[in-house]
Write a protein that binds this DNA or RNA. Structure first.
Lengths: 131, 131
DNA sequence: TATTATAATGATAATCATTACAACATAAAG
DNA sequence: CTTTATGTTGTAATGATTATCATTATAATA
């Protein structure tokens, strides 16, 4: 209910809108400081958490354990992730039908977004010895 | 090509088969020690990495940044994850068609597995103040 | 079998994103 | 203008994972 939007949350949202992509908390912090804002790193994390709970932004945890944040948008992307080099390739398709989402809602869940990721070896990593 | 399987890798695989579920590296280490094995924690991490590169096991990074490992199996599961309490509910459906996977292979990617996760608020978390 | 090269291992230190904490600031309410 | 709750900051603590390096096991070769 409390749609109180603190100043730091506004700043975070503003930057995310401008970016139109995903970014991690630390880089977000640096960019905001570059803008002249004076907020602290802890506040950035707290703001991101609040926005996530509101369903305004989404979080993707990378294989390195680092979180990336972005606005939730209709034209989201999924990825092919290489377990060898860690790089990922964007896909422009999404097989998740509205029908499936409604099925989830039926379980009393309020769905904000979904993630679909494929894992395997990219061409380069297939043709070389591990390690 | 080198399908050399070290002793520690065998032990890790053996435990994962017995478990039939996912486990993090630290717990895996403890369980192996309880079995009487004498391997070190670093070796567990190394073994998991090697098995992952082989396409034998899969890794799921939790929102806390912790990794969970399990055997890759046909009857995998997807989840509804609550961004509030962090709990997740298993789904028994998977909308990913073989056709889609072949499309990925066409991009020179060798797919081992995929993950599909929904995020939102569970019933309990919808009806309470944040924080 | 003895020798040598290569890979695996274990203990521990280093790394790094995130969270906890305590002091201070701000705003809302009476 | 106090009181009270909430937001914010910098810093220390946390905790999983990775790097390091000396040691040991394994494989390849003579």
């Amino acid at each position: 209910m409390s749609v109180r939007r603190t100043n730091s949350q506004k700043q975070i949202l503003s930057l995310l809108k401008q970016l139109q992509g995903e970014i991690n908390a630390q880089d977000l912090y640096v960019k905001l400081r570059e803008r002249g804002e004076t907020l602290g790193l802890a506040t950035v994390y707290r703001g991101l958490k609040a926005l996530k709970l509101e369903g305004t932004i989404q979080e993707r945890v990378s294989p390195t354990g680092e979180s990336f944040y972005s606005l939730i948008s209709k034209d989201h992307q999924h990825h092919l992730n290489c377990v060898g080099c860690g790089r990922s390739l964007s896909l422009d398709i999404c097989p998740i039908e509205q029908q499936l989402i409604e099925l989830c809602q039926a379980k009393n869940f309020q769905i904000f977004y979904h993630t679909l990721e494929f894992f395997g070896l990219c061409h380069a990593c297939q043709n070389q010895q591990p390690n």
